[in-house]
Design a protein around this nucleic acid. Structure first.
Lengths: 262, 262
DNA sequence: CGATAAGTTGAACTGGCTCAAGTCATGTGG
DNA sequence: CCACATGACTTGAGCCAGTTCAACTTATCG
C-alpha cells in the first residue's frame, strides 16, 4: 500500500492521496471474492453467494507485484485470465522493429488476458505500472465452472463483450484524428472508471508515462505533453506531472466529442 | 448468385469470377449447419454431429439481403448474432457529427454482432456491401445451448476471443502511422481470409469503396487511392478499380510490416 | 547527491489532409 | 439500348497538425 503512495510526489497541491490509498482495494491476499469490495465490478456480478464460493475455490490470489514486473508475456502459453485487485497494469505488444505498442490500461476490478483465449497464447504482455496485486483465474477451470453455473457463463460472455466494445471504441477514437480528442477521451475514461470504483472522478494520478499514453493513443509523447499544456492553459485541467485535476468536465467532454464511452 | 457476379465489370482482365461465384457459400436457405461448407470456419467447429443438429434447431436462416440493406442498426435491442453465409458486410458507427466510421468488414463464415452482448444494444450498424445472406442465431438460445454443450461454450469463448484479438490488431495497425502499411495490411487480411475459404489469395474484389476503406483505416479516401496507385507503380499489386491482384506477396508483407496477423 | 528517466518546449520538416477539377463506372428512365 | 445523372475514383496543389530532432528542466531513486 505504502509503495503506491510513495510514487506520489510529496509536496503535491492535489492531495488525493488518502482516498487513493484506502480505496485501491485489498492487497490482503486472504480476502475472498465474496468479501472483495471489487466484487460489484469484477467477475462475480450476477452470482449468488453459493456460486461465488464455487468461483472462490478456483481463484488463485497472486502475490503483490512491483512496478515493472510482468504478469505474463506475449507468446507465452495462455493458462489464466487475471483480475486486477490493486494498482494498474498496461498491456503491450512488441512490434518487429522492437518498439512497444501499448494496447490497454487496466485498473482494479478489470480483467486482463482475454486476448489469449482464442489461440492459447498470450497476445500481449502485461506489466505492473505501480505496485499492484491480482487474482489469477485458471481459464479451463473457469470454463468447467461456467458450464455448470449459467449465470457465470453469462457473466463471462458479457465481460468478453465489454472488452470487444472497449477495443472498438479505442479503434474509432484512434482513427478519428485530433490529438486533443484522444487525450481528452483517455482522461474521461479514467475519470469514469474511477467513478465506478467510488474514487474521485475529477482528481487522479495518471498511471502511465507520456510515452505510454502516446503509444496507446497513436501520437508521440511530445504531442501528449503539448496537449496537456494546452488543456491546462485553457483552464480545462490542471496538470502537475502525473497528477490530473479536471477543472471543466463539460469542456473536456466537448473536446472528446463525448464518445458516450468515456 | 448472379447478382453478385453482376457487380463484376464485364471486360475485366482478371476473370476470377467463376471461383467467386461458386465458392461464396450457399444462398440456398435450406442448407443446414451440418451441410454448410462454411462449417469449418463458423460456429460449428469442434462440435460433433449430434451437437450440430442441436445448434441447427436454433439457427434461423435469413433471407437474401441486397446491397445497402441493414442487418441491424446501432442502438437497436440486441437479440441475435449473425453468421455470414454469402456476400460481405460492413459494420459502422455514426459519430455525433453525423459521419460514418467503419469498424469492421465481415466475410462468409464470420460472426457479426458480438459488440451487442454486453449492453443488450447493438454497438454498431451492419449493412450488406453486396447481395448476401446470413444465419441468425438468437443469443439467449445460444447461451442456453452453450450451458448444455461444453464444446459449444468453448467454441464461442474462442470466437469472442478472436474478435478481441482482431480488434486489437486493428488498433495497433491504426496507431502505427504509415498509410501504406495500413492498406497493405488490409489487403493481406482479405487475402488470408480468402485463403481460409479456399478462394484465391492473390486475386479478389474489394468489397468496400475507397471511402469505406479510408474510414476503416483512419485515412482519407484520397490517401487510399494514392496508396493503391503507388503500390501499382511499384508492381506490388495490380489495381483495376475494386479488382485486386497481388503481384508480389512478400513485398506486400514487408510493407505491412508482417504484423503476423494478416 | 548524482545519475538516469520523464517531461517540456522550440523550430523545422513532412505525410496526409483539404479543396478542387477532372475521369470513369454504374444504373435508371426515356 | 442509349443518354444522362449520380456516385466512385484519380490526381494535383497548397496547407497544417503532428512528427522529428534537439536542448533543456524536473522528477525519481539507488
Amino acid at each position: 500500500m505504502k509503495s503506491v503512495a510513495k510514487s506520489i510526489p510529496s509536496g503535491t497541491v492535489l492531495a488525493k492521496e488518502p482516498a487513493y490509498a484506502t480505496r485501491t482495494c485489498h492487497t490482503n491476499p486472504s480476502i475472498s471474492c465474496g468479501e472483495c469490495r471489487l466484487g460489484e465490478l469484477c467477475l462475480p456480478i450476477a452470482l449468488d453467494a453459493v456460486e461465488i464460493t464455487r468461483l472462490d475455490e478456483i481463484v488463485k490470489r497472486g502475490r503483490a507485484l512491483n512496478k515493472g514486473e510482468y504478469l505474463y508475456r506475449e507468446g507465452e502459453e495462455f493458462k489464466s485470465i487475471y483480475a486486477i485487485r490493486a494498482g494498474s497494469f498496461k498491456t503491450f505488444k512488441t512490434t518487429q522493429d522492437g518498439t512497444e505498442q501499448v494496447t490497454g490500461l487496466y485498473l482494479p476490478g478489470e480483467i486482463m488476458g482475454m486476448d489469449g483465449i482464442s489461440s492459447n497464447r498470450h497476445g500481449s504482455s502485461a506489466i505492473a505500472l505501480e505496485t499492484g496485486s491480482y487474482c489469477e483465474i485458471p481459464f479451463h477451470q473457469l470454463e468447467d465452472l461456467s458450464a455448470r453455473i449459467p449465470s457465470l457463463q453469462g457473466r463471462f460472455f458479457r465481460l468478453m463483450g465489454q472488452e470487444i466494445v472497449k477495443d472498438q471504441q479505442m479503434l474509432t477514437l484512434v482513427s478519428s484524428n485530433a490529438a486533443e480528442e484522444r487525450v481528452a477521451a483517455l482522461l474521461l475514461s479514467i475519470s469514469s472508471r474511477n467513478h465506478r470504483r467510488k474514487l474521485s472522478s475529477t482528481q487522479f494520478r495518471l498511471p502511465m508515462t507520456r510515452a505510454d499514453i502516446g503509444s496507446y493513443l497513436g501520437v508521440t509523447l511530445e504531442t501528449v505533453s503539448r496537449v496537456f499544456s494546452r488543456l491546462q492553459k485553457q483552464q480545462i485541467v490542471k496538470v502537475d506531472n502525473k497528477e490530473i485535476q479536471v477543472l471543466d468536465m463539460s469542456a473536456l467532454r466537448r473536446i472528446a466529442k463525448l464518445n458516450e464511452s468515456a
